[in-house]
Amino acid sequence: MSVNKVRSALYFVSRILGDANAVKRGKVGKRIARRLAGKGTGRLLGKLFR
């Protein structure tokens, strides 16, 4: 197994744990909004610096 696959798996698990923690604390909406804002910002910056 390569280092990149291990890293990808760890990031995936951490995202799942973060989602579970948000559900536990009742902050799912805020987490979803931040994730969407981050994706939008990343796409915008990607188009700017292409």
Rank of each mutant, 00 (worst) to 15 (best):
R7E: 07
R34C: 08
D19M: 14
L44A: 15
G38N: 10
R50P: 06
K39Y: 03
S14Y: 01
F49W: 07
R35C: 06
L36N: 08
R25C: 04
L45I: 11
V6L: 14
L48P: 06
A33M: 03
K5G: 06
N21T: 04
F12C: 10
R15H: 11
S14L: 04
F49V: 12
K30H: 09
G26E: 01
R50E: 06
R35N: 14
I32L: 09
K24F: 07
K47R: 13
D19E: 08
K27Q: 09
A20C: 12
K39N: 05
Y11W: 11
V6Q: 11
K30T: 09
V23K: 07
K30L: 13
R7Q: 12
G26S: 13
K5P: 02
S2C: 05
G40T: 10
K30A: 12
Y11K: 15
G42Q: 06
K5E: 08
M1Q: 06
G46C: 01
V3N: 10
G42N: 08
N21R: 12
A37V: 07
N4L: 14
G18I: 10
A9C: 05
S14H: 03
R43F: 02
Y11Q: 10
L36F: 06
M1K: 10
G42K: 07
G38Q: 03
K27G: 13
G38A: 02
G29I: 00
N21G: 01
K27N: 15
I32R: 01
M1I: 00
N4P: 07
K27C: 15
D19H: 10
G18V: 13
R7N: 11
R15T: 15
K30Q: 14
R34N: 14
A9D: 10
R7Y: 02
R31T: 05
I16M: 08
R50S: 15
N21H: 14
R31A: 14
V13N: 05
L44Y: 05
G29W: 00
K47D: 09
I32F: 00
